[in-house]
């Protein structure tokens, strides 16, 4: 699903150049649930931004679902993001004057899905994350866990190839974190490919594979026995 070869990225800061990614190589197969771990400054967010086409690499190849991702202009990047990727953020990033259902329907709107179909799909995904009754509520009326579930529903709505989650549990208490991880595991069980950036070991243990980043290189890449989140809920 994802192939990355020899990925380099550096940031210019005045005269100094900061080499953040120093040759990353890894592949993700369909249906995997991968945790990308590392301390801050390890380059994990940069990697995720490149994977999410929010940032571009200096050199190296990135192939997503057999499509080489390169020479993107903003319009093309926007289209690819919409088609291939679903985002889940630490701070949820819901649009606060739109109801839960409207938030979920947003990526479909950019795909020019007809209004009625959009609403039906939004309700379907809200139901999947257990928030159908909250469809008409604004984000300000939802709890943190509920917001993150709406965000996950939104990420799923466009039926992306890969779900990218940047510290999805970073702003949640541990009980709510496990609920969200339980949801993510169930979505993964249904066959979706998911990448999670986290620095919490217990969250990483709930994935199927852990990629450890340090100072811009992968120092460890191992498959693990998944800990199910259900038992903590």
């Amino acid at each position: 699903m994802i192939q990355i070869k020899d990925l380099h990225k550096s940031y210019k800061m005045g005269k100094n150049s900061l080499h953040v990614l120093k040759g990353i190589n890894f592949n993700v197969e369909e249906g995997e649930l991968v945790a990308i771990m590392g301390s801050s400054g390890s380059g994990k967010s940069t990697l995720l931004n490149i994977l999410g086409m929010l940032d571009s690499s200096d050199s190296g190849a990135y192939i997503l679902d057999n499509v080489p991702i390169k020479d993107l202009n903003e319009t093309k990047a926007a289209r690819y993001r919409n088609k291939f990727l679903g985002f889940v953020f630490q701070s949820f990033n819901l649009i606060n004057y739109k109801s839960a259902a409207e938030n979920v329907a947003l990526p479909l709107y950019y795909q020019k899905v007809p209004r009625k179909e959009r609403q039906e799909k939004a309700l379907k995904y809200l139901e999947q994350v257990g928030l159908k009754e909250w469809a008409g509520h604004l984000p300000s009326e939802l709890s943190g866990g509920q917001k993150q579930r709406v965000a996950i529903a939104r990420a799923l709505a466009a039926e992306p190839k890969v779900l990218l989650a940047d510290e999805p549990t970073g702003a949640l208490d541990s009980k709510t974190s496990y609920e969200v991880m339980d949801l993510i595991q169930k979505i993964n069980d249904a066959g979706n490919t998911i990448l999670i950036v986290t620095h919490e070991p217990d969250i990483a243990d709930m994935c199927k594979r852990i990629v450890h980043l340090k100072d811009g290189v992968i120092i460890e890449d191992k498959k693990i026995e998944q800990v199910r989140a259900e038992q903590y809920v």
Partner: peptide, 13 residues
Amino acid sequence: KEIGIRRALGEAP
């Protein structure tokens, strides 16, 4: 921020 979210979700410029 909202515009950033929209862009991330795939709204064209």
